[in-house]
Write a protein that binds this DNA or RNA. Structure first.
Length: 480
RNA sequence: CGGGGCGUAGCGCAGUCCGGUUAGCGCGCCUGGUUCGGGACCAGGAGGUCGGAGGUUCAAAUCCUCUCGCCCCGACCA
């Protein structure tokens, strides 16, 4: 196994990010520009993410379905903002079976159009509502510049699509999903997020409102980690998705769409990892515990083997994902480095010394090594995993808070974005003029108009930029 | 599309300016042995269209022209 050297974060953060991915074998560049291969160690994380999210979607009444990859080009054009927003990013198939197609097919950049065209057939009455769908799939958005996981031409995601009888119900759905995303980010990824609504310039093409979760990465750039859109009746009108109301009238459905993608893996890396490689939060670690046996003689080998197998069994019985590294071609120290680079949260070292003392040495990826009694190895390891999960979240949260500035002035905003970066909270008049000027001069965008929980107290009264009365509070940052 | 960097063994690189035997080095890989508690060592091996095409030359990894691709920064982007 060729190991990949890791550039320190302080030297070159972008290189560090790439190096961590290569070292941990999460992904690789593909022969096709802008695309990536997700390798087993990376895909394993995605599978765990899928399981967790899918469970939450099912619990809230959603069902999975699958809609086709190809969308007639004319469908995209039916919603004006939608086509305008996505036109530059489309991959279009013009030939099939050796012939030019009558109508070009778009490789889905998102599936609203094809889904609403189908919902129009399936929905007749308010009794058919709500429709709560989700699909796990790949999508393609042509990008000028790509980065592994964070922005690739093709990526994997889930897209939820729901149709409701009332505006309020759709709004509630969009909000509820945002809560799921937040819970997932914090409880599974140990990645704290702020929630709120996007400005018009940042919202999804075709949405009435876009809600989002935003996280702050280690380099103090923001990452949009998930979005949930209240679509109003925009797509329903474009695709004539109507239903008969209880009163006998005809109305267009109210709808939502929402998604998170393999970009989350990039967020996970950028939130937790260090100069030694990946740090994977235990709940999303394909391997949570690696057991490294140590022996010299055949006699020792037998005793160690027996103990290791016993430990592995009890950890598995305790619901943990364990790997026993029984390779005899590597010294223990070399294995330590390898598994650290791979991000495995807990390592158990078991040699003759441990066997004779009835213990195992438990090393945490986040630092620290201590013996645990073999009789308590499962609960002790479980506790270590839980502690690591909690520590990662609280460390990330305090880092975010240390790099958040409240009630910034114009000068502070400029200086901050030009220097350290981070989240800048301030008053905003709401004008596109100020928003654009700030973007031009600081390269920072409004990440969110934060939800009440995240707002400053007292609320800012004046616009950071123009000094006019503030209509809302905004959070600025440079973003991925 | 602009600016910068770069394509030589699986990975990381030297050699290129100033053309000259069989193109090297480290890591990894294979075989054998000794090792084994934080990246082991010795010996012997395998592995190359020097990104591609054309040109100059007695001779090209090296010089010239064209071309393909990758990374970083920018423009752009739920």
């Amino acid at each position: 196994m060729a190991e990949h050297a890791i550039t320190p974060r302080a030297k070159d953060f972008s290189e560090w990010y790439n190096d961590v991915i290569m070292r941990a074998q999460l992904a690789d560049y593909s022969p096709v520009r802008g695309c990536m291969v997700i390798r087993p160690r990376g895909y394993g994380i995605w599978e765990l993410m899928q399981q967790a999210l899918d469970g939450m979607f099912k619990e809230t009444g959603h069902q999975n379905a699958y809609f086709p990859l190809f969308i007639p080009q004319s469908f995209l054009a039916k919603e004006a903002d939608h086509v305008e927003g996505f036109a530059p990013q489309l991959a279009v198939v013009t030939h099939g079976g050796g012939k030019e197609l009558d109508e070009p097919l778009v490789v889905r950049p998102t599936s609203e159009t094809i889904i609403y065209s189908m919902l129009s057939k399936w929905i007749q009455s308010y009794r058919d509502l709500p429709v709560l769908l989700n699909q796990w799939c790949n999508i393609v958005r042509w990008e000028m510049r790509t980065r592994l996981f964070l922005r690739t031409t093709e990526f994997l995601w889930q897209e939820g699509h729901t149709a409701h009888a009332t505006s309020d119900e759709a709004e509630t759905e969009a909000r509820m999903i945002l809560g799921i995303y937040r819970r997932f980010a914090e409880e599974w990824m140990a990645m704290p997020v702020i929630t709120g609504v996007k400005t018009d310039s940042e919202k999804f093409a075709g949405a009435v409102r876009t809600y989002a979760i935003e996280a702050l990465m280690q380099d103090n750039k923001a990452l949009q980690a998930g979005t949930s859109h209240f679509l109003g009746q925009n797509f329903a009108k474009a695709f004539d998705t109507t239903f008969q109301t209880a009163a006998g009238g005809l109305d267009h459905v109210w709808s939502t769409s929402w998604g998170v993608s393999t970009r989350l893996i990039g967020g996970l890396i950028l939130t937790h990892s260090d100069d030694n490689g990946l740090i994977c939060p235990p709940r999303l670690a394909p391997i949570q515990v690696v057991i490294v046996p140590i022996w010299k003689t055949d006699t020792e080998r037998e005793a160690v083997l027996q103990t290791c197998n016993g430990v592995m069994d009890s950890l598995k019985a305790g619901g943990m994902r364990v790997h026993l590294d029984w390779r005899d071609s590597m010294k223990p120290g070399a294995k330590y480095y390898e598994w650290e680079g791979n991000g495995v949260p807990v390592r158990l070292e078991i040699g003759p010394r441990e066997v004779s003392q009835g213990q195992a040495m438990l090393a945490r990826r986040t630092g620290g090594k201590a013996p645990v009694r073999l009789s308590e190895v499962a609960p002790a390891t479980r506790a270590a995993l839980d502690a690591i999960q909690q520590d990662l979240l609280s460390q990330a949260r305090s880092r975010r808070e240390q790099n958040s500035v409240r009630n910034v002035t114009k000068d502070q905003l400029v200086q901050l974005m030009d220097g350290a970066g981070g989240f800048a909270y301030g008053g905003f008049c709401g004008s596109g003029t100020c928003e654009n000027e700030i973007k031009d001069q600081t390269k920072a965008t409004v990440r969110l108009l934060p939800d009440p929980e995240f707002r400053s107290n007292p609320a800012p009264t004046k616009c950071v930029w123009c000094g006019q009365p503030a209509t809302v509070e905004a959070v600025w940052a440079r973003a991925y």
